[in-house]
Amino acid sequence: MSLDPASLRIDQRLLYFMDQLEILEEKRQKLNALIEEGWFNISKARYSMGNKQVSALQYASEMDPHVYVNTRSTLRNGVVEFQCEQTEHKAEEPKESDTVENMGTNRRRQKETEDESTAKGQHEEERQVAPKAEKAQCPLQEPLKWFGILVPQNLKQAQTVFKEVITLSAEISTLQNVILVTREELQSQMKEKQKISLN
């Protein structure tokens, strides 16, 4: 005796639903373990830096996100996909003209010209240097630096772990959405089946 197509479809969706739940549980376990590792590293950093050196008091007054989530709604059933995007804040690489040797020669050249230049010329030079100094302060601030220049290795490890947690949370969010959409599909398929069986 063969099953009717509606029942087969429901069975398939149910198996898919179960698979997604299983994947969610695995990812959840991984997420929980990673968060615990992160806290442990923060606690270790706090132990070596001092109790009040790793707290909300150190948060910067200006913050810019380094991580974004791209949301994409797939055409099939309207499942929303979350994808993490890390914007790397690269330290400004020194230009060839900024190397120590070149800076030395520049200084010499400046000194030679300074002798010849007038006071007016000097003012112009100062005006040109000022925007450069402002520019250097502008780039995205590394959150690690809120807690000091030389932070313990544990805090860096905590940062790495939490970056991984963020990526994983985006994956879990997608999975949760898939599960909820599949659940709705299953419920509607079951209702259809009930209607057919009543007729």
Partner: peptide, 26 residues
């Protein structure tokens, strides 16, 4: 054209961890 943000409501260590990860914005 940038993506969306991640928000956190949590205890101090949870927030510190996620902010270290780079989600913080004012």
């Amino acid at each position: 054209g940038r993506g969306k943000l991640i928000a956190v409501i949590g205890d101090e260590d949870t927030c510190t961890g996620f902010l270290l990860g780079g989600i913080g914005e004012l």
